[in-house]
Computed example of a mutant assay.
Amino acid sequence: MKIDITESAREWFENEVGLKKGSGVRFSGKVYGNTEVHEGFSVGMEVGQPSDILAETTINGIIYFIDKHDEWFFSGYDLQVSFDKKRDEPIYHFIEQK
């Protein structure tokens, strides 16, 4: 599993969330909403430090990660995080692993 953060999403996380080198962003599954592959669940995001990492990528000293206990939500997919300029928020895409 891999996590891909687009340049526009990275800029949003750094500027709007105020992340600095050494910060971490955890992606998780949360109840309510929908994704491209889940009914009744959406992607949650919170600032925090990793403890039991399933997947990670580091950009500008900021670690973007998924914990192992969220494997049920991301299993079989890579996560691509892009940015919707109209809505001014990240967009989460699930890319099926081959």
Rank of each mutant, 00 (worst) to 15 (best):
P90S: 07
P90N: 05
D84L: 05
K98Y: 03
I95Q: 01
A9S: 10
I62P: 04
I66C: 06
T57C: 11
A9M: 03
K86V: 09
Q49N: 10
F73V: 05
I59K: 15
T58G: 02
E96R: 13
D4H: 07
Q80E: 15
A9D: 08
Y64D: 04
D88M: 14
D67G: 11
I5K: 03
A55G: 00
Y92C: 00
I53W: 07
R26L: 13
G24D: 11
Q49R: 12
F83V: 10
S42Y: 08
Q80R: 14
D88K: 14
E56A: 12
G24R: 08
V31H: 08
I63N: 07
V17D: 03
T57H: 07
D52L: 04
N60R: 10
A9L: 07
K2E: 15
E56P: 00
F94L: 01
D88Y: 08
S28T: 11
S42R: 13
N60M: 04
D4C: 00
Q80G: 01
E56M: 01
W12H: 12
Q80F: 00
I91T: 06
E71Y: 12
S8F: 02
V17F: 01
D84I: 08
N15Q: 14
P90W: 01
G24M: 11
F13W: 10
E16M: 05
V43W: 03
I59V: 15
F27Y: 14
G40V: 03
F41K: 13
I53Y: 07
F13I: 09
H69F: 13
P90H: 05
S28E: 11
G29C: 09
V81F: 01
T57A: 06
T58W: 00
E11D: 10
P90T: 10
G24E: 08
Y92W: 06
D70M: 12
F83T: 11
I53P: 05
I5G: 00
D4T: 07
R26I: 12
I63W: 02
R10L: 15
F41Y: 15
I53R: 05
H38R: 15
Q49M: 12
R26W: 07
G61M: 09
D67C: 03
V25C: 12
F65E: 03
G18L: 10
S82F: 06
G18Q: 11
D84T: 06
K68C: 12
E56S: 15
I59W: 02
K98W: 10
S51R: 14
V25G: 04
E89I: 09
N60I: 03
F27N: 00
N34G: 01
V43A: 04
I63M: 13
S8W: 00
S28W: 07
E14A: 08
D70Y: 14
I95K: 01
E71Q: 14
K98G: 14
I62M: 02
D4M: 05
F13A: 01
